[in-house]
Amino acid sequence: MTLTLALQLLVNGLVNGGLLGLVALGLALIFGVVRVVNFAHGEFITLGAYTTFLLVTQFALSPLIGIPVAFLVGGLFGWVVHAVIVSRMTGRPELDVLMMTFSLSIVGLGLFALIFGGDFRNYSEGPTGSIDIGGVVVGWRSLTALIACVVLGAGTLLVVQRARIGLGLRALAQNRDAAAACGINVPASERIAFSLAVGLAAAAGSLVSLIGTTTPTVGHYWVLDGFVVVVLGGMGSISGALLAAFAISLVNSFGSYLLDDAWARIITYLLLYAAILLRPHGLLGRESAS
């Protein structure tokens, strides 16, 4: 393993880690603020991917425009879904809420398969070529994706940590009743958080369509890893999720090279189980009173 090779694998892992982090960020946001495990998150990723694909192939627009468009489309869908379905589920037992997002996921999967079929979709528009930094090759597409992830991720964190709205969201995450008693508009805040998270997912999907292939199940596979990250990072801990996202991506990157894709995934899952055994509350989760 030469240094160059190691750096190359590291860079690959970083790019994927950025995407995974974006996905996990959305999941953690929804779990922390709306207290919902969003099984349909993958389908929103796929939504973003197909949106950009259509934009590029049908309207001849640059994929770079596709990113914010996907974000907005996702946000809109998130808004509607929360207003029409998710908000009706307040007070319902966890199992029901879980099944609700799960059913949404099935509907989404079915719709994508129905409308677009199972074909692999790609497009060549957008950034091409790569840059070479001392033997480490990074494609411009990957670099664009990484930059977009950082921008979107940082922007979200800024909003959550600094903006007035973000304060409301954090308050809500910590204590719903107290937040309401302080005059925070709980339903509206939930909707904002949900829409934001779905927008992030769609944007991530847009990036996936840029650097990878678009299929009806593309989002599903990213979100599965997203769930690994969230569980590892401690259900609702944003810093934990980000840390775990990069950890997982690096394991995958190095594992894929040293062994093969399948073994890399197997190792990831085994590591997850080990982590669960040793630290049931995730890497950085807080210990909760029973």
Partner: peptide, 28 residues
């Protein structure tokens, strides 16, 4: 032994991963 110590939702994920893990292993 691993997943039942977790909270309900984390257990659900663990079972989802188990599904994937078994599929991967059987293929290998």
């Amino acid at each position: 032994a691993t997943a039942l110590r977790l909270r309900g939702t984390a257990f659900t994920f663990a079972t989802l991963f188990f599904q994937e893990l078994v599929l991967l292993l059987v293929r290998k």
